[in-house]
Design a protein around this nucleic acid. Structure first.
Length: 113
RNA sequence: CGAGAUGGUCGGGCGGUUGCGUGCUUUUGCACGAGGAAAGUCCGAGUACCGCAGAACAGAAUGCCGGCUAACUACCGGUGGAGGCGACUCCAAGGAAAGUGCAACAGAAAUAAUCCGCCUUGAAAACAAGGUAAGGGUGGAAAGGCGAGGUAAGGGCUCACCGCCGAUGCGGCAACGCGUCGGGCUAUGUAAACCCCAUUCGGUACAAGAUUGCGCGGGAAUAACGGGUUGUUCGCCCUCCCGACAGUGUCGCUUGAACGUAUCGGCAACGCUACGUCUUAGAUAGAUAACCGCCGAAUACAGAACUCGGCUUACAGACCAUACUCGGUAA
RNA sequence: CGAGGUAUAGCGCAGUUUGGUAGCGCGCUUGGUUCGGGACCAAGAGGCCGUGAGUUCGAAUCUCGCUACCUCGA
């Protein structure tokens, strides 16, 4: 689980990333990211994906996956779950998200480090 | 043995590695960390702020009786009605002689009556006048029901039983029940149609609201002194007061009409007393995850957001209780 | 967290106030008209009125509970 300091918390920050950030997407997730002085990750799961229990589970898994990829470049990142994400297994989600982060170039520092 | 009825409980447990939130230590570490519905937001309160001399109208809600409760439309017990062979279950259950509205189609007629029929009279028949609601037919509903007497034919016209209305006796706190006497009986249904009667209700909801600092807006003071900014001047900031609440931080935020056990009172809901429990979730883009082992049927519905009391809805599977009910078989 | 609205034929909507027959436009099918098509004319099909109960003789309509979608306030 990500510590609090690595999380994106303010509503305005989400808006900032949506407006200014670049955008990559797969079938299950969308990724918004913008370069920053510190690493902040936020997660967004819409009401349409299910009831509270399902949404919470999805968020927990997303956080766990990002935590395991942890040494990342300094970006402000928002991960948005799309409708097909509700049906994925943990392993599928992990594969999908890794690919997405690699395409965005955020994983690079891990290879150097 | 099978089929039921009612009430209730659980709804995972143990362990390992890597992680998250809160509290305590402030390095390590230790403790605790979603539900029976946390849900829907349908009722009732606490609490906060606003409003308010007092009262009434309007509007809304409730509606057999008694109890219980902080309060309630909840809950408990009873009465009456409906359903079931039964255990038992269900019921928004006041008033239709205060008034208004509505009752399609069918039917002669729908709150008002003679279409057919029956009977009498005129003149046997056709036909006409009159009597008649027992029979036919329509309808959810047709002027109390049913049987007997009576009658020209009929009709509470008269009588028995049942129902209704009024009076009254007994039992019950009461709803109501069981009787007695009288009236022959005049007015169908609908109030989850308007309405009448009785009772209750000020509004907004913790994103309420409180508050320190920062920030914001306005003003004061100084053109005096000091400090900062630039080499200097001007300007700006540092000072003080007031305001507004949109941002941020803190509080509100978890010990409460609390829960558990036992005695006593009560048919029960519930209450009294005693003992015990409490860091035992208090987050704020919002904490329970990932991987695995064992037990194993562990698979459902589902995630706290100020807090309680209820209601409603969703739900795999497992289990318990009863001098419970019905049927079958055996003794 | 709180407040409201909508659901009727393939599509868009009436009807709900005041309960008894479910209708309009477009589309669809068949026939006519035309040399043929369109337009036009005539006829027809297509609805358990979102869902489950209740009140009533009778419910799309009244009452209550669910479901889905939409809007608004903070």
């Amino acid at each position: 689980m990500l510590k609090k300091i690595y999380r994106l918390t303010k509503h305005g920050s989400f808006g900032f990333v949506y407006r200014k950030g670049e955008n990559k997407a797969s079938a299950a997730f969308s990724l918004f990211y913008v370069k920053s002085t510190s690493l902040k990750v936020g997660f967004s799961v819409s009401n349409k994906l299910g009831k509270a229990t399902a949404r919470n589970k999805l968020k927990r898994r997303m956080r766990a996956i990002v935590m395991h990829m942890m040494p990342l470049s300094k970006y402000q990142i928002v991960v948005v779950a799309r409708t097909p994400a509700a049906g994925l297994t943990y392993a599928d989600m992990q594969k999908d998200l890794k690919l997405l982060f690699a395409r965005a170039g955020i994983l690079n520092e891990k290879k150097e480090a």
